[in-house]
Write a protein that binds this DNA or RNA. Structure first.
Lengths: 407, 407
DNA sequence: AACCACTTTGTGTTTTTTCACAAAGTGGTT
DNA sequence: AACCACTTTGTGAAAAAACACAAAGTGGTT
């Protein structure tokens, strides 16, 4: 009967050896359930294993099922192999699993499919032995990865630190940059600075996003900066992005509700020279969304911010007393001397396209009150029948005032 | 009986001499009816003369009355003094007037109030003699003015030719610049290049604007550039400006309908360093108004252009294929394959705040057609209940497309 | 406390807008 | 020519919004 050696030069040869020792298909995964190695056992295999090998990663539904059923937790807590009954709903046949751990840190897992006969104690002991041997190899890989990632993070931060690119940085970026694909720079902004633990979880969620391909990412205080591109066709990049952004933010807010994560996505760009400008755009989105959470609830990308991109500049000019809008000024004057809220009323009246009912329900007042206030506003400012561009400007002037006050 | 000398050293002494010769109050005006000199005759005078001397200029209503009644035309055509009956409606007593001409060019006028007795032939002859003497003096003044004006015009054009100011120019500008007053740069743009004749008439109208004070002006092709400020209080500079702009443009389009004059006014500025930027703003207004005459009918100043200031930049990006709006794109696609006009319909639907009736009447179609098209648009793009900023962005995207096409 | 001007809410009524549906028109295809 | 899918216009009913008006509330002033 063949036993395992003390060490193997690669995970693949280890997987092969275990597979031969217990005569069953073996897969080895890292802690993110990404496939590291698998044995070439000729026996029939189940849909879950095929999908894992094809996608180089355990399918999301399978992982979720294993978490929700508590099986994965059991595997992690146990130091010994665990036999898992078949879960046919997610295409999983019966199998055994053992965690690969260093102290309390999970490094990965070894899975073995069951044959027709149950696992013997000896086979399970071989699996456990395999985990011990794999630990050394995984630690080397993990350390290497950490070093690489840390270096790439420093590099991205360095690039984003200054508007102009130096030549060596540009050269290295161009090696990394995807060709003829529209890139985006996305920021995930949290309420508190991102701890290593949070970073780990964020990276995991990011890695499971199938719609995007990450080029580089880095953490800067409360923000996770991500240079990525959409895997979709260029022609519907925008549609795909917007759909993804919506889904992704909802997912983030589900999983990290305590950190109040918020997305900010730049316009698309093709040249790595644009990275700094893109980061600026993304930051602008997060800043504006922080200031106007309600109004920009569903605006994730710079394109969606629309005319809000004028607000900071306008606010600056108002701050310098260079600019005021006569209409807004008059309303503010009236509001402060009569303790009314004409300005806010007008703002939401414009926002809701003059729908009195929606304005009333948003402000929690009687519709007739809105009508009364609008009549008053018209007396004060004769903004009867103003066109969209003018309405938009007044709206922006109001918003810019609020931006200044809150800053 | 005292007669006139062959020449006088100043217009004032000439006016005095004529006044003494015919024992009546005398005023001498240039061709713009600006007061050049007047006699200090102790006799009672009429309201028009008082107003003229106080304002250093014949009041506008008086000039208008004299033009409309054809009197001024008669004075100009006649080489001899003309006796004018009283026109009490505009505060004008009976008087005699003689034009001062060089060939066919009017240089100015001499006016004499009537005393209780009618003018004698000899007195009228003295008036005419005075006109001949005044001609020499006026020619000197006119030539001097022309030289100064031409020089100042060249200077302004020089300043506006480059974004950065050189030191000598800055120094000279600061001498000219008003202190602690908000300046504006206004452009009057005509359909054709401005001829000297048109320039003359424009300058005249400009000089009669009491709301503004002109610092410098210059002609550049089809544009008359004017650096000026409002005479009103700083606090309501904007209100005053907008009111003036409206009046002034209407006036221009009345008087110069064949040249189709259009205003473009910069934001206010306080530093002469800002002149170039201000000219840019003003030019932007005129350009946009040329492209969108209907939409910007009542937008004269850069502030009023509102969000239209985004259009050229957006158009440029669309031209580079860097940017398209998914909603607009889909509508355009549908329009071209179905020969419909959903894009235009949406544009005006937004413009008119969703007022179906107004959209229908503007597009000359049945209101139900608008409703039908909006239903169709909603099926294609689900833009149900989008908020103002998004509507504005879509509107701008449409406008930017039109801008590009027309360019 | 009484008064004032102004604001908010509630009520029915009137006006406007939307909707459903039918009929007629349009342009391209077979 | 017949057919198709789609668009435009017209009609009256249904729904929604605006309006007028009364009553009650609010906050400051005399």
């Amino acid at each position: 009967m063949p036993f395992l050696q003390k060490s193997y030069e690669s995970l693949d040869s280890l997987a092969e050896a275990i597979g031969q020792a217990i005569r069953a298909p073996i897969t080895i995964e890292n802690r993110h359930h990404q496939l590291l190695a698998y044995s070439t056992h000729p026996d029939s295999t189940d849909p879950a294993r095929i999908a894992t090998i094809i996608g180089r990663r355990v399918p999301e539904p399978v992982i979720e099922d294993l978490w929700e059923s508590g099986i994965l937790r059991e595997v992690i807590n146990q130091h010994d192999p665990v036999v898992i009954p078949a879960r046919l709903a997610v295409g999983l046949g019966e199998r055994a699993a053992v965690v690969i751990k260093q102290h309390d840190e999970v490094l990965g897992y070894i899975w073995s499919l069951a044959r027709t006969t149950p696992f013997t104690n000896q086979e399970l002991a071989i699996l456990k032995e395999g985990a011990t041997i794999a630990k050394k190899l995984l630690m080397t890989i993990a350390m290497h990865e950490r070093r690489i990632n840390a270096e790439l993070e420093r590099f991205l931060l360095d690039v984003l630190a200054s508007p102009a690119l130096n030549d060596s940085n540009r050269e290295r970026l161009n090696e990394l940059a995807p060709i003829a694909v529209a890139s985006r720079l996305t920021i995930i902004e949290c309420a508190q600075p991102i701890t290593p633990q949070l970073a780990e979880r964020l990276h995991y969620v990011l890695a499971t996003q199938e719609a995007i391909e990450v080029v580089l990412h880095a953490i800067d205080g409360q923000q996770l900066l991500i240079w990525h591109y959409m895997k979709s066709e260029l022609s519907d990049e925008e549609t795909a992005l917007l759909a993804w952004a919506k889904r992704f933010e909802r997912l983030l807010q589900d999983k990290f509700s305590e950190s109040e994560p918020r997305l900010g996505i730049s316009r698309r760009f093709f040249e790595s020279d644009m990275l700094y400008a893109a980061a600026e755009e993304a930051r602008r989105v997060t800043t504006l969304r922080r200031k106007f959470p309600l109004e920009l609830l569903n605006s994730h990308a710079f394109e969606q911010i629309g005319i809000y991109q004028l607000v900071p500049e306008l606010a600056r000019r108002i701050g310098l007393r260079l600019e005021t809008h006569p209409t807004v000024e008059r309303l503010q004057q009236y509001d402060s001397s009569h303790q009314t809220e004409l300005e806010t009323t007008l703002e939401w009246y414009f926002y809701f396209e003059g729908n009195v009912k929606r304005v009333a329900s948003h402000l929690h007042i009687h519709p007739n009150t809105v009508l009364y206030r609008m009549r008053r506003i018209e007396e004060l400012t004769n903004i009867t029948q103003v066109s969209l561009p003018e309405r938009a400007m007044i709206y922006l002037a109001i918003k810019a005032g609020q931006y200044r006050l809150e800053d």
